[in-house]
């Protein structure tokens, strides 16, 4: 039985809208006369949908849309607009309102709009609940030497960590930074075989060389393989390139006072700091990054 919260500072309009909604069998209607009161009602008993006037004292409909989106992202908000407020309604949609209905068309359009929005939001909630039930996943990617694929991949893996509930937002950012560094190392220093010494001397030459090699054999046909095994306790992400490999032990310590001005090794330092475990294979072309949920050190995924 869906509950709809009607927010309007006009008692007459609340009565009018409530009359329309209460005709629908099974719908329950709650009321608030302004935005702050609406937020308190939502916090106490979250409705399935918020239907709000746009122009109200204290907190207007636009501010209410932002507040609901931020605090209760799964509750859709529909705005009721008056003549001349179309521009504001557009801004409300940009800020995350699900839809809007002009007040003069309420009798004809309101119920259909609410049915449609409830249907879409119901699907979204089911999707969220399903993803929240995810307990383990394994993902395999074979990437061309295309830097443009890295950001979507990192974002996808961060979303997977969130769905698994493995770590909070700050830890996901740390994992993202580490993973980005591993991917860029795999491309630049692995598949394209460039080294930081050149970047230190001539950074423009370094980027020219990257571009040239990305077009040339054997570099252009090399791939980056990413394997991610993730559970609620641990994420194990392997990034492998097809370059000749390198000896991570030979990298200077970038945090040593003498090396602070050098480029080499900072990416690996970030990886080692932000992950619980970072290991290379013997050839040096495959790095395994491990992140564990606090309190599960050493457990298998």
């Amino acid at each position: 039985m869906p509950t709809i919260l009607v927010v309007d500072d006009s008692p007459v309009d609340r009565l009018l809208v409530g009359g329309l909604l209460e005709k629908e069998p099974g719908w329950e209607v709650a009321y608030a006369s302004q935005g702050v009161e609406a937020l308190a009602v939502i916090a106490a008993r979250p409705p399935d949908l918020v239907l709000t006037d746009l122009v109200m004292p204290e907190m207007d409909g636009l501010e209410l849309v932002s507040a609901v989106r931020s605090r209760h992202p799964l509750i859709p908000v529909i705005l009721m607009t008056s003549k001349g407020s179309e521009e504001t309604a557009t801004r409300a949609l940009q800020q995350g309102a699900a839809s809007y209905v002009p007040k003069r068309l309420l009798a004809n359009e309101l119920l259909d709009t609410i049915h449609w929005v409830l249907s879409v939001s119901g699907q979204q909630r089911s999707h969220e609940r399903l993803l929240g039930s995810l307990s383990r996943c394994e993902l395999y990617f074979e990437l061309e030497n295309d830097r443009g694929l890295f950001a979507p991949l990192v974002g996808f893996l961060q979303d997977s960590l969130a769905n698994l509930g493995l770590c909070g937002e700050t830890e996901r950012i740390r994992v993202g930074v580490a993973l980005e560094e591993a991917l860029v190392n795999a491309l630049d220093h692995g598949n394209l075989e460039t080294n930081s010494a050149l970047r230190e001397q001539d950074f423009q030459g370094y980027y020219r060389l990257l571009q040239e090699r990305a077009r040339k054999l054997p570099y252009r046909e090399r791939r980056i393989r990413v394997e991610a095994q993730m559970s609620r306790n641990e994420a194990r992400i392997v990034v492998r390139d097809e370059g000749p490999g390198f000896d991570p032990a030979a990298l200077p310590d970038p945090a040593a006072p003498a090396n602070l001005e050098k480029i080499s090794g900072r990416g690996l330092l970030l990886m080692r700091t932000f992950m619980d475990e970072v290991t290379y294979n013997a050839r040096g072309n495959e790095v395994t990054l491990v992140k564990r949920c606090p309190g599960t050190k050493g457990t298998k995924p």
Binding site: R147, V154, V184, F203, Y207, L210
Partner: peptide
């Protein structure tokens, strides 16, 4: 900005 936008940064 991670290392992904390195070329833009440079």
């Amino acid at each position: 900005l991670g290392s992904l936008a390195e070329e833009e940064l440079q």
